[in-house]
Simulated scan of single mutants.
Amino acid sequence: MPWWSWIVIWIALVALSLLFFVVLGVRLYRKFMTTVKELGEAGDRFGHLPSATPVPAPAEPGTPATPTALASGSAVYAPPARVRHDYEAAKAARREARRLRRVQRKADRGQPQRLHDIEFS
C-alpha cells in the first residue's frame, strides 16, 4: 500500500468524524430550541398565580369560621388542620360513592349484599 493512501484514509476518517459532530450539534441545537420554546409557552401558561378564595369571616367574634372546600392551589397557604379535614371529608365521600355503586351493581345483578354495605338507618 503506497504511503499516500494512509493520508487519504486519515483525511476521510477526520472528515467523517467532523461531519458526525456537525450533525450531532445541529440535532442538539434544534432540540434545545424546541425545549426553550416549550418552556416559554409553559411559563406564559402557568406564570400567573390562581386567585385564592377568601375564608368567610365569623358571624360573631367568639365563633370559629365554618370550614369550606379549598380552591385549587390554595392548600399551600391553608392551615394544616383544614387541609386534613378537607382531605378526610373527600376521602369519606369517595368511599361512600363507591359503596353506593357497589350496592346498586349487586342489586341490579340480583346478588346478595354484604352486611358491611347495607345501610342501617
Rank of each mutant, 00 (worst) to 15 (best):
R102Y: 01
S5P: 00
P58G: 01
P79Y: 03
P64C: 01
R99Q: 10
A78M: 07
V76Q: 12
A92R: 13
K37A: 14
D108T: 06
P50M: 07
G73C: 08
T68G: 13
R114Q: 07
P67H: 04
P80N: 12
L28C: 08
K91M: 12
V23L: 10
L19C: 09
G40R: 06
V103H: 00
M1A: 11
A71H: 06
A52H: 10
S74Q: 13
K37H: 10
M1P: 01
W10S: 03
L100M: 12
Y77G: 15
P79A: 11
P112W: 09
K37P: 02
S17H: 09
P50I: 06
R82C: 01
L70N: 02
T66N: 08
W4G: 03
W4C: 05
R27D: 13
Y29N: 07
Q113S: 02
A93W: 04
S17P: 03
A42W: 03
V55Y: 04
A93G: 09
R45H: 08
G40Q: 04
L49R: 09
R30E: 12
V36D: 14
W6P: 00
V22Y: 05
R101D: 15
T53D: 10
K91R: 10
S74L: 04
R102C: 00
P61D: 05
E60S: 09
Q104L: 11
D86L: 02
R109V: 13
R84S: 15
A89K: 05
D44I: 10
L70E: 02
R82Y: 02
V22H: 05
A69K: 11
A57C: 02
A42V: 00
S5L: 10
E88T: 07
